[in-house]
Amino acid sequence: METEPLLVTTNDGVATIVINRSARKNAVTQAMWVDLAARVNAFSADPDARVIVLRGAGDDFSAGADIGEFDTLRGTAESARAYEATNSAAFAALRNCAIPVIAAIRGICFGGGFGLAAACDLRIATADAQFAVPAARLGLAYPQDAMGDIVWAAGPQMARYLTYTAGRIDARAALGAGFLLEIVEADRFDTRISEIARTISENAPLSVRASKAAIRAALSHDADEAALAQAVGDTTFVSTDYAEGRAAFHARRTPVFRGR
Protein backbone atom coordinates (compact mmCIF):
# COMPACT_ATOMS: atom_id res chain seq x y z
CA MET A 1 0.00 0.00 0.00
CA GLU A 2 1.34 3.39 -1.01
CA THR A 3 1.67 5.70 1.98
CA GLU A 4 4.21 8.40 1.15
CA PRO A 5 3.56 10.20 -2.16
CA LEU A 6 7.23 11.13 -2.37
CA LEU A 7 9.91 8.67 -1.28
CA VAL A 8 13.33 10.17 -0.61
CA THR A 9 16.58 8.30 0.01
CA THR A 10 20.23 9.32 0.09
CA ASN A 11 23.38 7.28 -0.44
CA ASP A 12 26.92 8.64 -0.76
CA GLY A 13 25.81 12.02 -2.04
CA VAL A 14 23.16 10.63 -4.40
CA ALA A 15 19.62 11.69 -3.47
CA THR A 16 16.76 9.77 -5.05
CA ILE A 17 13.24 11.20 -5.14
CA VAL A 18 10.50 8.79 -6.22
CA ILE A 19 7.05 10.01 -7.23
CA ASN A 20 5.16 7.25 -5.46
CA ARG A 21 1.60 6.99 -6.79
CA SER A 22 1.90 4.16 -9.26
CA ALA A 23 -1.82 3.33 -9.03
CA ARG A 24 -2.46 6.84 -10.45
CA LYS A 25 0.45 6.64 -12.90
CA ASN A 26 2.35 8.91 -10.52
CA ALA A 27 0.03 11.86 -11.01
CA VAL A 28 1.17 14.79 -8.87
CA THR A 29 -1.16 16.45 -6.36
CA GLN A 30 -0.89 20.06 -5.28
CA ALA A 31 0.59 18.97 -1.95
CA MET A 32 3.18 16.93 -3.82
CA TRP A 33 4.20 19.91 -5.99
CA VAL A 34 4.86 21.86 -2.79
CA ASP A 35 6.73 18.99 -1.14
CA LEU A 36 8.83 18.29 -4.22
CA ALA A 37 9.97 21.92 -4.43
CA ALA A 38 10.92 21.89 -0.74
CA ARG A 39 12.84 18.63 -1.04
CA VAL A 40 14.82 19.74 -4.09
CA ASN A 41 15.61 23.13 -2.55
CA ALA A 42 16.86 21.40 0.60
CA PHE A 43 19.23 19.19 -1.39
CA SER A 44 20.39 22.20 -3.39
CA ALA A 45 21.48 23.87 -0.16
CA ASP A 46 23.05 20.72 1.31
CA PRO A 47 26.85 20.69 0.80
CA ASP A 48 26.86 16.90 1.11
CA ALA A 49 24.35 16.37 -1.70
CA ARG A 50 25.99 15.90 -5.08
CA VAL A 51 23.30 14.72 -7.50
CA ILE A 52 19.54 14.08 -7.50
CA VAL A 53 17.76 11.29 -9.35
CA LEU A 54 14.06 11.94 -9.99
CA ARG A 55 11.97 8.94 -11.00
CA GLY A 56 8.50 7.45 -10.77
CA ALA A 57 7.39 4.33 -8.91
CA GLY A 58 6.48 1.28 -10.95
CA ASP A 59 6.33 1.44 -14.73
CA ASP A 60 5.77 5.18 -15.31
CA PHE A 61 7.58 8.44 -14.69
CA SER A 62 4.53 10.67 -14.21
CA ALA A 63 1.19 11.40 -15.88
CA GLY A 64 1.52 15.02 -14.71
CA ALA A 65 -0.82 16.99 -12.50
CA ASP A 66 -3.64 15.00 -10.89
CA ILE A 67 -6.69 16.02 -12.91
CA GLY A 68 -8.95 14.74 -10.13
CA GLU A 69 -8.09 17.90 -8.17
CA PHE A 70 -8.87 20.35 -10.96
CA ASP A 71 -12.55 20.95 -10.19
CA THR A 72 -11.81 21.99 -6.63
CA LEU A 73 -8.25 23.34 -6.75
CA ARG A 74 -8.13 24.64 -10.31
CA GLY A 75 -11.76 25.40 -11.04
CA THR A 76 -11.60 29.22 -11.17
CA ALA A 77 -9.10 31.67 -12.64
CA GLU A 78 -7.94 32.64 -9.15
CA SER A 79 -7.50 29.08 -7.91
CA ALA A 80 -5.87 28.06 -11.19
CA ARG A 81 -3.27 30.79 -10.80
CA ALA A 82 -2.57 29.69 -7.24
CA TYR A 83 -2.27 26.06 -8.36
CA GLU A 84 0.04 27.03 -11.21
CA ALA A 85 2.30 28.83 -8.74
CA THR A 86 2.86 25.57 -6.87
CA ASN A 87 3.85 23.53 -9.90
CA SER A 88 5.95 26.40 -11.26
CA ALA A 89 7.82 26.41 -7.94
CA ALA A 90 8.62 22.71 -8.41
CA PHE A 91 9.86 23.30 -11.95
CA ALA A 92 11.96 26.24 -10.72
CA ALA A 93 13.47 24.19 -7.89
CA LEU A 94 14.73 21.61 -10.39
CA ARG A 95 15.83 24.24 -12.91
CA ASN A 96 17.72 26.31 -10.33
CA CYS A 97 19.05 23.43 -8.23
CA ALA A 98 22.76 23.93 -7.59
CA ILE A 99 23.51 20.25 -8.21
CA PRO A 100 22.71 18.12 -11.26
CA VAL A 101 19.31 16.44 -11.50
CA ILE A 102 18.78 13.28 -13.55
CA ALA A 103 15.29 12.32 -14.77
CA ALA A 104 15.02 8.51 -14.95
CA ILE A 105 12.06 7.97 -17.26
CA ARG A 106 10.01 4.83 -17.79
CA GLY A 107 6.62 4.64 -19.46
CA ILE A 108 4.39 7.71 -19.35
CA CYS A 109 5.93 11.17 -19.12
CA PHE A 110 3.01 13.52 -19.76
CA GLY A 111 2.01 17.09 -19.01
CA GLY A 112 3.48 18.25 -15.72
CA GLY A 113 5.58 15.09 -15.68
CA PHE A 114 7.10 16.18 -18.97
CA GLY A 115 7.68 19.59 -17.39
CA LEU A 116 9.50 18.03 -14.46
CA ALA A 117 11.72 16.05 -16.80
CA ALA A 118 12.37 19.12 -18.95
CA ALA A 119 13.56 21.05 -15.90
CA CYS A 120 16.14 18.38 -15.09
CA ASP A 121 19.71 18.44 -16.37
CA LEU A 122 19.90 14.96 -17.87
CA ARG A 123 17.08 12.75 -19.12
CA ILE A 124 17.49 9.01 -19.69
CA ALA A 125 14.63 6.73 -20.70
CA THR A 126 13.67 3.19 -21.51
CA ALA A 127 12.56 2.37 -25.05
CA ASP A 128 8.89 2.14 -23.99
CA ALA A 129 8.75 5.75 -22.73
CA GLN A 130 6.01 7.97 -24.14
CA PHE A 131 5.95 11.76 -24.04
CA ALA A 132 3.12 14.30 -24.40
CA VAL A 133 2.05 17.80 -23.37
CA PRO A 134 -1.78 17.56 -23.53
CA ALA A 135 -2.73 21.00 -22.17
CA ALA A 136 -4.64 21.76 -25.39
CA ARG A 137 -6.90 18.76 -24.68
CA LEU A 138 -7.83 20.31 -21.33
CA GLY A 139 -8.23 23.92 -22.46
CA LEU A 140 -5.32 25.08 -20.32
CA ALA A 141 -2.26 27.21 -20.93
CA TYR A 142 1.01 25.56 -20.00
CA PRO A 143 3.01 27.69 -17.50
CA GLN A 144 5.28 30.10 -19.33
CA ASP A 145 8.35 29.33 -17.25
CA ALA A 146 7.90 25.60 -17.75
CA MET A 147 7.42 26.17 -21.47
CA GLY A 148 10.87 27.71 -21.48
CA ASP A 149 12.26 24.44 -20.10
CA ILE A 150 10.51 22.50 -22.84
CA VAL A 151 11.87 24.76 -25.57
CA TRP A 152 15.41 24.45 -24.20
CA ALA A 153 15.15 20.69 -23.68
CA ALA A 154 13.30 19.60 -26.82
CA GLY A 155 13.83 22.50 -29.22
CA PRO A 156 11.27 25.05 -30.43
CA GLN A 157 9.85 22.93 -33.25
CA MET A 158 9.21 19.90 -31.05
CA ALA A 159 7.77 22.19 -28.36
CA ARG A 160 5.33 23.57 -30.93
CA TYR A 161 4.38 20.11 -32.16
CA LEU A 162 3.77 18.73 -28.67
CA THR A 163 1.73 21.69 -27.44
CA TYR A 164 -0.21 22.46 -30.64
CA THR A 165 -1.23 18.86 -31.36
CA ALA A 166 -1.20 17.40 -27.82
CA GLY A 167 0.19 14.36 -29.59
CA ARG A 168 2.47 11.68 -28.20
CA ILE A 169 6.02 10.92 -29.25
CA ASP A 170 8.08 7.87 -28.42
CA ALA A 171 11.55 7.64 -26.92
CA ARG A 172 13.24 7.52 -30.30
CA ALA A 173 11.62 10.79 -31.37
CA ALA A 174 12.50 12.37 -28.03
CA LEU A 175 16.11 11.28 -28.46
CA GLY A 176 16.18 12.74 -31.97
CA ALA A 177 14.89 16.07 -30.66
CA GLY A 178 17.67 16.18 -28.09
CA PHE A 179 15.26 15.80 -25.18
CA LEU A 180 16.86 12.52 -24.11
CA LEU A 181 20.51 11.85 -23.50
CA GLU A 182 20.14 8.09 -23.92
CA ILE A 183 17.66 5.28 -24.43
CA VAL A 184 18.60 2.29 -22.27
CA GLU A 185 17.26 -1.25 -22.33
CA ALA A 186 14.91 -1.95 -19.43
CA ASP A 187 17.14 -4.60 -17.87
CA ARG A 188 20.09 -2.19 -17.76
CA PHE A 189 18.15 0.96 -16.89
CA ASP A 190 18.65 1.07 -13.12
CA THR A 191 22.30 0.14 -13.49
CA ARG A 192 22.93 2.89 -16.03
CA ILE A 193 21.19 5.52 -13.90
CA SER A 194 23.31 4.46 -10.93
CA GLU A 195 26.49 4.57 -13.02
CA ILE A 196 25.91 8.15 -14.14
CA ALA A 197 24.81 9.33 -10.70
CA ARG A 198 27.80 7.68 -9.04
CA THR A 199 30.23 9.16 -11.57
CA ILE A 200 28.88 12.63 -10.90
CA SER A 201 28.98 12.10 -7.14
CA GLU A 202 32.62 11.01 -7.26
CA ASN A 203 33.77 14.13 -9.12
CA ALA A 204 34.64 17.39 -7.37
CA PRO A 205 31.29 18.79 -6.16
CA LEU A 206 32.33 22.45 -6.37
CA SER A 207 33.53 21.93 -9.93
CA VAL A 208 30.25 20.28 -10.92
CA ARG A 209 28.25 23.08 -9.30
CA ALA A 210 30.38 25.63 -11.14
CA SER A 211 29.76 23.87 -14.45
CA LYS A 212 26.01 23.82 -13.87
CA ALA A 213 25.99 27.53 -13.04
CA ALA A 214 28.13 28.36 -16.08
CA ILE A 215 25.95 26.33 -18.46
CA ARG A 216 22.83 28.03 -17.12
CA ALA A 217 24.42 31.44 -17.58
CA ALA A 218 25.49 30.57 -21.12
CA LEU A 219 21.93 29.57 -22.01
CA SER A 220 20.21 32.50 -20.33
CA HIS A 221 22.61 35.29 -21.32
CA ASP A 222 21.68 36.84 -17.98
CA ALA A 223 24.27 39.13 -16.37
CA ASP A 224 23.32 38.17 -12.83
CA GLU A 225 23.62 34.47 -13.59
CA ALA A 226 26.96 35.07 -15.31
CA ALA A 227 28.21 36.85 -12.18
CA LEU A 228 26.96 33.99 -10.00
CA ALA A 229 28.69 31.44 -12.25
CA GLN A 230 31.93 33.40 -12.00
CA ALA A 231 31.67 33.52 -8.21
CA VAL A 232 30.94 29.80 -7.94
CA GLY A 233 33.83 29.05 -10.27
CA ASP A 234 36.19 31.23 -8.23
CA THR A 235 35.52 29.14 -5.13
CA THR A 236 37.10 26.11 -6.78
CA PHE A 237 40.52 27.77 -6.98
CA VAL A 238 40.81 28.13 -3.20
CA SER A 239 39.17 24.83 -2.31
CA THR A 240 40.81 21.88 -0.63
CA ASP A 241 39.35 19.77 -3.45
CA TYR A 242 41.54 21.60 -5.95
CA ALA A 243 44.58 20.76 -3.83
CA GLU A 244 43.37 17.16 -3.56
CA GLY A 245 42.90 16.92 -7.31
CA ARG A 246 46.46 18.10 -7.97
CA ALA A 247 47.90 15.83 -5.30
CA ALA A 248 46.03 12.80 -6.61
CA PHE A 249 47.18 13.53 -10.15
CA HIS A 250 50.84 13.64 -9.11
CA ALA A 251 50.48 10.52 -6.95
CA ARG A 252 48.56 8.72 -9.70
CA ARG A 253 45.75 7.80 -7.34
CA THR A 254 42.00 8.35 -7.33
CA PRO A 255 41.08 11.69 -5.73
CA VAL A 256 38.71 11.82 -2.78
CA PHE A 257 36.71 15.03 -2.96
CA ARG A 258 34.96 16.56 0.03
CA GLY A 259 33.14 19.48 -1.53
CA ARG A 260 35.18 21.96 0.50
Rank of each mutant, 00 (worst) to 15 (best):
G107D: 09
A45F: 08
V208R: 11
E202G: 01
W33G: 04
D234E: 14
G245M: 07
L138T: 01
T76M: 13
T191C: 03
R216Q: 12
F114C: 03
G167H: 08
R216I: 00
A49L: 04
N96V: 06
E69D: 13
T3L: 09
G148C: 03
F131K: 02
A92D: 12
G155S: 03
A118N: 06
A15I: 00
V28Y: 08
A136G: 01
D187L: 06
I108W: 03
A98S: 15
E2F: 04
A214Y: 06
N20V: 11
R55C: 13
A210L: 04
A135W: 12
T236A: 11
Q144K: 13
R209H: 09
F110P: 00
D59P: 09
T72Y: 09
G112D: 07
I108T: 13
T165Q: 11
I124V: 15
D121N: 14
R39W: 00
R74N: 08
A92P: 05
D224E: 15
S62Y: 12
G56Y: 10
L122V: 15
A135Y: 15
Y83V: 03
S220M: 11
N41A: 06
D59Q: 15
G167L: 07
L206D: 07
L36E: 05
G58N: 03
I52R: 06
T72L: 13
V40D: 02
I99Q: 04
G176A: 14
K25E: 07
P47F: 07
N20G: 09
T235G: 03
